[in-house]
Amino acid sequence: MITKRHRKTIRITLTYIICVLAFIFFIMPLLWITYSSFRSPSAILSGTIISPAGQYTLDNYRTILSVTDFPVYFWNSLRIGFMVTFAAMVLSIIGAYGLSRYSLKGKNAYIMGVFSTQMFPIVLLLIPIYNIIFTMGLFNTALGVVLGQLMLVLPFAVWMLKGYFDNLPKEIEDSARIDGCNLFQMLFRIVLPISAPGIMVAAFYSFVVSWGDYLVVSVISQSQKTATLTLALQRLSSSLLLRWGQVAAATVLTIVPTILLFSFVQTRLVEGLTAGSVKA
């Protein structure tokens, strides 16, 4: 007979085993990259884990930060990422809510229409995307990049939020409607708080897709005004004098802000809001 206490011990042990395994698989390679970013070229190529004290260096970071316009690209990535996230959330929340709660003739056709870009190889769409953005006069502008990336983000964001809204109980909304709430009051007061975890995942997804996008940026951007971090990374990694240490340093600089952002989102918003709404 397994008692409740045993069960708790098993649960905690299993959790830690899974976490340790996940840590080894997902995080260790990144720690190795981080570690490599502080090593000199000869230390990296030595094939040993520990190298003499003199072979650790900050040069990789110094080079990246001083000569590659890294801060400029970083800022571009950040603001474009935020713009994409914001626009994607506004559009997909109302769109998904509409699809979930209201009827629409030929709904499936619309959903498929939204998804069709994801079904065609994106490398074949580069020239048309360029043509459209150029015709709109948005070539080499942040807005152009944002529009291009929205195309990548929206299908999933809409689809995911629709799935999330479908799962929510409709009773609260019905009573709110009787109380005389209009659509936007209802969205803001009732739907958003309940679905915060889902919205956060969708928002984070949007941000990460924008942050990691190379293809759209490479087509639309052509100056420091709009070039993002992935472009900078791409440059470093295609150099004839490829220096692993610098690539590692650049990778670390790309990851750290997103992890900080995510941990903020995770602890402050998701848990707080869910806790609040479930109790209510």
């Binding site: 997902f26 990144l30 942050w211 996008d213 990374l233 650049a250 995510f262």
Partner: peptide, 12 residues
Amino acid sequence: VIMASWVIPVAA
């Protein structure tokens, strides 16, 4: 921290 691998650009 578990999200880290997902936020790295694919090229990287």
